[in-house]
Structure formats: structure tokens, C-alpha cells
């Protein structure tokens, strides 16, 4: 019902563009430092950990390509979505639940405002649009982290590194991975809003909403990922 109501409200004017912009800033821009740091560390660690195995088979030169494919196809989107679920999903859940407790949602309703449109639609749309952008940034920074990792025990120029990466990547690596991030963002936003908006009254409800939002949103990221992989495989083979 909650999802159906979202689709009913999202296309129905009036549109809350000002709040949408504000939420996009809070959800997207404010998540950037965390996502960037995680992306860099993932790229660096993945490179360092993969090197010995590849070296055993004399395949060191495949390192950039292997890391790039891993980051772009799977690790970048999924790890970023999980970080996003932890930060944004819990934040939305706690914020809306506390607005519920303090009657702020009721106050909006009596102020001739549709609180579902103002609070839920804007947050879900922002999360859906911002996560793909964050994943693009996270992937790029992850590849930079990998470049640093490659150069910890070697001397590979940026030009050579980039050419190795782009030779190994195809559109079929980028596009499905990019598309699924919209679904990840939608799931995180929707679950956070659902838990917060429908929380039980009381401070206990706030904590529970935040916690449940993270758990379910993270689980949903894995489920969507599993479905996305199956669909992608159908088209590729």
C-alpha cells in the first residue's frame, strides 16, 4: 500500500521541488565524504589482496583489469548501497519516526500540506537519484585507490593503468551495474520512509525505526542484486 501510494503521489501535482532539492543535497552531497573514503579503501585493499594470487599465476598485469571489473560490476554499487543504507536509510527512518512522535507530521497535515508528498516522496526520489551518482563517484575513487595499490609495489603510469582498465571494460559492465543502483536507492529511501512514517509512538519507536530501516534496506540491496545478476545473465548468454 505504501509503495502504491508513493507511485500515486509522485506523479500528482503539486511537486515539492524545493524540498526535493534540499533532500538531494542532504542525501547526496552530505554522503559523499563517507562514500568516497569507503570507495578509496575498497579499491586499495582489493588490489593489495588480489596481487599475491595473480602473481602466483604470473598474471600481475591483469590486476588493474580484474579490480576494475570487480569494482564497476559489483563491489562499487553494492558496498556504496550498503553504506548508503546505513547512513541515509537509518537517518530517514529516525527523522520521520521522531517527527511522528513529536506530532510534526500531524502538524503538517493540519497546515494544508500533504505530509506523504512532502516527506516521503521527496526523500524516496532523492535517494533514487542520488545513489547512482554516488556510485559513479565511488567507482572512480575506488579505481584511484586501486591505482595507488598497484603502485605500492610497482611503477605503472596513470596512462597505462587507465588504458588497461578501459580495454577490459565494456558497456555491458557499466550499464546493468548503473541501472541496478536506481533500484538500490529506491529501496533504501522507501524502506527508511516506511519504517519512520509508520513507527510506533514513543522514543523506542525512533530507535526501532532506524534499526529496522538499515536491516531491511541492506537485505533488500542483496535481494535486488541477486535478481539483477539473474536478469543480466539472461541477456548476456
Amino acid at each position: 500500500m505504501f509503495t502504491l501510494r508513493f507511485f500515486k503521489e509522485v506523479f500528482h501535482p503539486p511537486y515539492e521541488f524545493k524540498e526535493l532539492t534540499k533532500q538531494s543535497f542532504l542525501i547526496g552531497y552530505k554522503s559523499f565524504p563517507l562514500v568516497a573514503t569507503t570507495g578509496f579503501i575498497i579499491g586499495l585493499v582489493l588490489t593489495i589482496q588480489s596481487r599475491p594470487t595473480l602473481a602466483k599465476f604470473g598474471a600481475d598485469s591483469w590486476l588493474p583489469a580484474m579490480v576494475a571489473v570487480s569494482i564497476i560490476r559489483e563491489i562499487g554499487p553494492v558496498i556504496t548501497a550498503l553504506i548508503f543504507a546505513g547512513k541515509v536509510g537509518s537517518g530517514i527512518g529516525a527523522e520521520l519516526a521522531s517527527m511522528n512522535v513529536t506530532e510534526q507530521i500531524d502538524a503538517m497535515q493540519v497546515s494544508w500540506t500533504n505530509p506523504f508528498k512532502y516527506l516521503v516522496v521527496t526523500r524516496v526520489v532523492s535517494a533514487t537519484l542520488m545513489l547512482p551518482l554516488l556510485v559513479v563517484f565511488s567507482d572512480a575513487i575506488g579505481l584511484f585507490g586501486s591505482y595507488v595499490g598497484v603502485n605500492l609495489r610497482g611503477d605503472v603510469s596513470a596512462h597505462l593503468y587507465l588504458s588497461q582498465i578501459f580495454q577490459s571494460l565494456e558497456y555491458k559492465d557499466f550499464i546493468p551495474a548503473f541501472i541496478k543502483t536506481f533500484f538500490f536507492g529506491f529501496a533504501v529511501g522507501l524502506i527508511g520512509c516506511f519504517e519512520g512514517y509508520n513507527s510506533n509512538k514513543g522514543t523506542e519507536g525512533v530507535g526501532k525505526a532506524a534499526n529496522t530501516a538499515v536491516v531491511f534496506a541492506s537485505l533488500m540491496v542483496f535481494i535486488i542484486d541477486m535478481i539483477a545478476v539473474q536478469i543480466t545473465s539472461l541477456f548476456q548468454y
Partner: peptide
């Protein structure tokens, strides 16, 4: 509803907004 004012028990002020924004909110809506 536009013609009815409701003072909530908890005041129900919007925490994320300043005093000015709290007052402007119903004006912008109505």
C-alpha cells in the same frame, strides 16, 4: 482546515527549521 488553527500539546514545531521557517511554512502552503 484552513480556517481552523490547532495548537498541539507538544507544540509540534519543525525541528529542522528555524523559528522564521516554522512561521513561513503555513504561509507558503496556504
Amino acid at each position: 482546515r484552513k480556517r481552523i488553527g490547532f495548537l498541539f500539546q507538544s507544540s509540534a514545531l519543525y525541528d529542522s527549521m528555524t523559528v522564521r521557517d516554522n512561521l513561513e511554512f503555513p504561509l507558503r502552503r496556504q
